[in-house]
Design a protein around this nucleic acid. Structure first.
Lengths: 252, 252
DNA sequence: GAGTGGTCTAGACCACGCC
DNA sequence: GCGTGGTCTAGACCACTCA
């Protein structure tokens, strides 16, 4: 109730945050209208708005223009597992539809781009390419039940993928891992890296991300016999809909 | 330049975002003062402020009250690797100071709590405990060069850890993994899970997180011979300062 | 159409950081 | 002290949603 030390809209935000955390407002339930909150706290609407927007950027509420503001619901999480470590059958490989089916949803994908391009420095570095080398890029948008939830881009050295099915804009039976094996590459190891960040403006649009939703960024370099990098892939996922799972043996 | 269709402050945000992405304003560099932007775009300061706050929640800029607003710099990233998979010597285990040193920083930790408590349902579930079982919890705050960057909480079934060094509030020589082995447990596998989300208000305070900074959440269940869960750990990390690395053999 | 959130102004005053 | 961002009001008008 201090006046200047702490902004009043922050007090309102704190009150609402506590109420939500306490469970006074359940997920999916509406919080009071801004006009009502304005009256209750003796503030003007723009100030109350500020409080509510703050909670939205914290991922606590969803603001829907003409309808009200609701406590954000935890949507089903797709647990993507590094299954290629333990199993090896074709159907055990990390296939999008398989992963999504396991969670009772329908997986689908839209191939956004298949092209031969000059790689960025990052891609070039991960694939250990010469400066003048080109890559085949495959960009996909993955859906769970008609919701776009993941951007998956894969890169292959042109020396490996040009003129192969990897450079064609069709689906890959068995996934790209199978395609690489059909080309005679024996995969030996995967180097993975997981990061998180706020989405770019473009990613917000493509995956229809709400404010206050971060993305998981999953990078992977696939090596074939002789320690040759044959694929670099980057997946950017709606972090509210994804988790990554690893089963690691303690071993040796 | 359309008036009502797109909010003017969003236009300003878009302009600045493009300028930053283009590199017109370099990381660490100041963007024009709100007063100047207000004049340039013929808007009032509160509106310009809204644009700048939007960029802050996107993680693009840092707002410093009395000084200006600067383009956010990428801080050094601590790459935490699941090294226990491939190596096994004591010094190869995932030790905080070792990880941080590798990136040219000094690692330290503050032990926040060591206690025997009734576990949450989540912890109880991961450790496969009975309803009335207790756990020893160890809560730490990890620092990189005096910056608090990670919260690391570990839980052990009281049946395993009570009356042992794990229940004492001192440091563990060789880490808790070594402590478990000293207790006679042979570790067999790790189940890990990686998620990302916006930080709670408490986490913002403890790790001094800027607006627009998500956290990585890393969960791990450690199993000993007989598939007995002996440790559950939860690490919440400043996502701007961390990446998780995995080296996975293709195998079998 | 009633109700909800969104945007904006004009002007005021406050608070922080740095020189 | 100057310049920077922060907060707030009073009032206005707009835009979206749902009945």
């Amino acid at each position: 109730m201090t006046q200047p030390p702490i902004a009043r809209y922050k007090q309102v935000a704190a009150d609402l945050r506590a109420a939500i955390t306490r469970g006074d407002y359940q997920p999916g339930q509406r919080i009071p209208a801004s006009s009502e909150l304005a009256e209750r706290y003796d503030l003007t609407m723009p100030s109350v708005n500020k409080a509510i927007r703050l909670l939205a950027t914290e991922g606590l509420v969803d603001i829907a223009h003409g309808s009200g503001t609701t406590v954000r619901e935890r949507r089903p999480v797709i647990s993507v597992s590094a299954s290629y470590v333990t199993k090896h059958g074709d159907e055990a490989r990390a296939q999008w539809s398989t992963e999504v089916n396991r969670h009772g949803m329908a997986g689908s994908q839209q191939i956004r781009q298949v092209d031969t391009v000059t790689p960025s420095a990052e891609v070039s570095g991960y694939l250990a390419l010469d400066d003048d080398a080109h890559v085949v890029v495959r960009r996909r948008l993955l859906y769970a039940d008609s919701n776009p939830v993941q951007l998956a881009d894969s890169y292959y050295p042109a020396a490996i993928a040009a003129e192969t099915e990897l450079a064609e804009s069709g689906r890959m039976p068995g996934g790209t891992v199978a395609a690489l094996e059909r080309l005679g590459y024996v995969l030996t190891r995967f180097d993975e890296r997981v990061e998180a960040r706020m989405p770019t403006h473009e990613e917000v649009g493509l995956m229809r991300l709400q404010p206050g939703t971060p993305v998981l960024r999953h990078l992977r370099v696939t090596y074939a016999a002789g320690d040759v990098p044959v694929e670099f892939s980057e997946a950017v996922m709606n972090a509210e809909r994804h988790a990554l799972a690893y089963q690691l043996p303690a071993e040796v």
